[in-house]
């Protein structure tokens, strides 16, 4: 199907963009990569009156590594595309888990257009970057004419295709602590085909801390309406990653209430979650063994 008639704005500066969003609010849709939005418009699933195309927004494409309050952090701009995540040197070095996640996204043509921030704003429950953002404890910067706010990924997603973003705000940036050499990152998913949405995905981020248990964040996508941090399983993984059976039992106990009746095939999704957790756990144990050798 063809898109319905629609008005089109192409702001060049953030000032123009924020003014357009303030004026049109919920009548507007922000067009970044368009790889989800354009099909939705073609299928008439959404009916905005104004498209606000941010692809020519000055200074929105870059990736910067800067010294944040809690150490070096990566700031990924609104127009950073999936392909950049796989090819950009700074991104590959400082956020290797994002590259693992990007490898599961669609195909080259989709990765050439789709953006990281757009994927977060779209909040597809099966999408890769929202899941990685939760595991990496990413912070999402929302800007509007009213000002800016920074929202933790844990709080950003509120349901399927739903976030805390207000109609006059745009996702300007995502901030992630730069990976350190001893960190471990894992991302894997099960899908029917490489281009198909994930049935279940798992992301694991492990950051060693001197003198205490590592900071472990295990997140799961596809089991409920949004990516979820599994706090109890994460804590247990931090205490002892070797006890596979205990972790599996804990994962089931923590996931079962989330899965409930949200999806058909909840039992299958729980099974896949356990399989992916085991891959993540085994990967981390190998990483620990290799570190002991050197």
């Amino acid at each position: 199907m063809k898109l319905a008639p629609i008005a089109y704005l192409r702001p060049r500066t953030e000032e123009e963009l924020l003014a357009a969003l303030a004026r049109h609010g919920s009548r507007a849709a922000i067009l970044a990569g368009g790889q989800s939005l354009i099909p939705e418009l073609a299928l008439r699933q959404r009916a905005p009156q104004v498209l606000v195309d941010i692809n020519r927004l000055e200074g929105a494409g870059g990736v910067r590594c800067i010294q944040g309050d809690d150490g070096p952090e990566l700031r990924i701009g609104a127009l950073t595309r999936h392909d950049d995540v796989q090819t950009d040197h700074a991104l590959r070095t400082h956020a290797p888990m994002l590259a693992l996640a990007a490898a599961h996204i669609g195909n080259a043509a989709v990765r050439n257009r789709g953006t990281v921030c757009g994927s977060l704003a779209q909040a597809d429950p099966a999408a890769e970057f929202p899941l990685a953002a939760v595991a990496l404890n990413a912070r999402i910067v929302l800007r509007s004419a009213r000002g800016a706010r920074v929202v933790a990924a844990d709080d950003f997603f509120t349901g399927a295709n739903a976030t805390v973003r207000q109609p006059d705000e745009y996702v300007a940036e995502v901030r992630i602590a730069c990976a350190q050499p001893r960190d471990y990152g894992f991302f894997d998913e099960v899908a029917r085909r490489p281009t198909a949405p994930a049935i279940v995905g798992v992301a694991l981020s492990v950051r060693p801390r001197p003198g205490e248990a590592p900071d472990v964040r295990l997140a799961i996508g596809g089991v409920s309406d949004r990516p979820q941090l599994l706090e109890r399983t994460s804590l247990a993984l931090a205490r002892d990653p070797r006890d596979a059976a205990a972790l599996r039992a804990l994962l089931h106990a923590e996931l079962a209430p989330l899965a409930q009746h949200q999806h058909p095939g909840a039992a299958y999704r729980l099974h896949l979650a356990a399989v992916l957790l085991e891959r993540a756990r085994a990967g981390w144990c190998r990483h620990l063994d290799e570190r002991l050798k050197t």
């Binding site: 790889q35 099909p39 073609a42 195909n107 080259a108 043509a109 050439n112």
Partner: peptide
Amino acid sequence: CEQGACGACTVLLDGKAVRACLMLAVQAE
């Protein structure tokens, strides 16, 4: 398909492969 699934409309935009059905013409400015 006109929704990004079939790949038949793939073209190069500034040398990069893209789906021509998932872009507006005005975006090629």
